[in-house]
């Protein structure tokens, strides 16, 4: 590891720790995301009685789970950059930190937020909606990869919309087309995992999700400096 890479990673870690500390003290994003996850799980559970006795309910459960995760994520993941602009701390950060370190730190923070959201939402769905997971390992891996895809796409979009008016609307408009490919993959993969399909059956979904995450991560790394400095 070269010293400059080490310095970059140290700066990225500092951004992550700062965001985590700020979030734990303000809980802007965490509260919004968890409230949305809880309310959607409860809302879905009210209709779950209609699903209970039917066959092949797993695709619908998978879709509902990812709809809840997607909208909760959209609710909270843009906060990391929007808050920097709204509280006008972005200027100080822009002058002091290498842009790549900011992107990596924010990405890591969003990943942690989404991991917390995944855990809570999945448990709520298992408890309230009666979701039964056939292949737990595949289910958890798909959750992790799906969240990684959402995070890599969301983090750069959050940086783009942070300075705009009508942030929420613009975020949703930009995010939706980007999220369609991984959502199709992860919903179908999750449905398979719920039925108890083997790792081999889910391999093609895992590969496609990894590819999507790598492409959006690399593209974001290249784009971020321009977005951040503009």
């Amino acid at each position: 590891m070269t010293p400059s890479l080490q310095a970059l990673l140290t700066a990225a870690w500092a951004v992550f720790v700062k965001d985590l500390r700020s979030e734990l003290r303000t809980r802007y994003a965490l509260n919004a995301m968890l409230l949305f996850a809880a309310s959607s799980a409860v809302a879905v559970s009210l209709g779950a009685q209609f699903l209970g006795t039917q066959q092949n309910v797993e695709p619908l459960q998978a879709a509902l789970l990812w709809i809840a995760l997607l909208f909760a994520a959209l609710n909270g993941l843009s906060r990391s950059f929007v808050q920097e602009e709204e509280t006008r701390t972005a200027l100080a950060l822009r002058l002091a930190s290498p842009p790549t370190a900011i992107y990596l730190g924010k990405l890591l923070f969003n990943l942690l937020l989404l991991a917390a959201l995944d855990t809570v939402t999945s448990l709520l769905f298992i408890m309230f909606v009666g979701v039964e997971v056939g292949n737990v390992g595949l289910f958890v891996t798909l959750l992790a990869l799906g969240s990684l895809c959402l995070t890599t796409a969301t983090t750069i979009l959050a940086a783009i919309i942070a300075k705009a008016n009508f942030k929420s609307a613009l975020f949703a408009v930009l995010a939706f087309p980007l999220f369609i490919p991984p959502l199709i993959l992860v919903i179908r993969g999750t449905a398979l995992a719920l039925t108890g399909a083997s790792w081999g059956d889910g391999a093609s979904f895992l590969q496609a999700l990894i590819s999507y995450a790598v492409v959006t991560f690399v593209a974001s790394l290249f784009l971020f400096r321009t977005v951040w400095e503009s």
Binding site: S22, T26, T87, T89, L91, A92, L95
Partner: peptide
């Protein structure tokens, strides 16, 4: 090389 002070420079209020 630069140090900047301005009224619109804000630091993190929760820290």
């Amino acid at each position: 090389l630069l140090g900047w002070v301005a009224p619109d420079l804000m630091l993190y209020r929760e820290l």
